Simulated scan of single mutants.
Amino acid sequence: MSKVIGAHAVSVDGYITGRDPRAGRGLGDGTMLFDWYFDGDTPSRVFDGFRLSEPSARVFDALAARVGAVVAGRNTYEDSDGFGGGGPHPAARLFVLSHRPMPKMSERQTLVSTGIQDAIAAARAAAGGKDVGLMGGGVVTEALKAGLVDEVILHQVPILLGHGRPFFQPLPGHVRLRLVEAVPAPGVTHLRYEVER
């Protein structure tokens, strides 16, 4: 069965954006959270234009190859200018979780307004047996609250941003994680955790 995974580049102090993220400004000022996408010599086999270090390419491409659909929150969608009508993954269908109507969605994008369970169910149906990726702190937090997340993957960048949008929002209780893999790479450490049930 496919897994539900939350994967994000994150600062050491837990932020997934810089200051003042919003439509037209992307993920905010000076985050440096994604420099590792372009700082290496190894081209990604999944994402055109990405040139990663060899260890990052190995981890990133293996993860990207698993994803068949993505669920993103409204903030992530708007901060990313609607992903240009596509999605954050070149081959995966995008499901946007929002309780408000969405203007101008493309045929690769689907609005789900009935909650995280329905968004993940719709993404699973479209994923063709592959995994469902989660984008955005709110989406990941809601999926954790609902007990739907199988793995949390942090691409931890050695920077303290001090401000921005945090990856995790308040949870009603503890969520235990088990470290499965830690891969150090230039400018980033890839940490893969399984969610303990």
Rank of each mutant, 00 (worst) to 15 (best):
L94N: 13
V112I: 13
L97R: 07
A126K: 06
A123I: 02
R93T: 12
P88K: 08
R124D: 01
P103H: 05
T110L: 10
S113W: 10
L97F: 13
G115C: 14
T114V: 12
D131F: 04
G87A: 12
V132R: 00
A122M: 02
I116R: 05
G115V: 13
S113G: 14
A92G: 07
A122N: 14
T110A: 11
I116K: 11
H99W: 04
V96G: 06
K104I: 06
H99P: 03
Q117S: 05
Q117M: 07
A91V: 15
P90R: 14
A126M: 04
T114L: 05
R100N: 07
P101K: 10
G128F: 10
D118E: 15
A121G: 11
H89V: 07
V112T: 03
R108A: 14
E107T: 15
A123D: 00
P103I: 07
M102G: 08
A127V: 00
K104F: 14
P101I: 12
K104Y: 10
M105C: 09
H99L: 15
R124W: 00
A123V: 03
P101A: 08
Q109T: 10
Q117Y: 01
E107W: 09
P103F: 08
A126L: 04
Q117V: 11
Q117A: 09
R124T: 04
H99M: 05
P101R: 10
D118C: 01
I116C: 06
R108Q: 11
L97N: 14
A125L: 06
G128W: 06
G129E: 07
A119F: 00
A91C: 04
M105D: 05
D131Y: 01
M102D: 06
D131P: 03
V96Y: 07
M105A: 15
K130D: 03
R108I: 01
P103W: 04
H89M: 09
E107A: 12
P103S: 04
A119D: 04
P103Q: 12
A121F: 01
S113I: 13
L111D: 06
A121R: 11
H99R: 10
A127I: 00
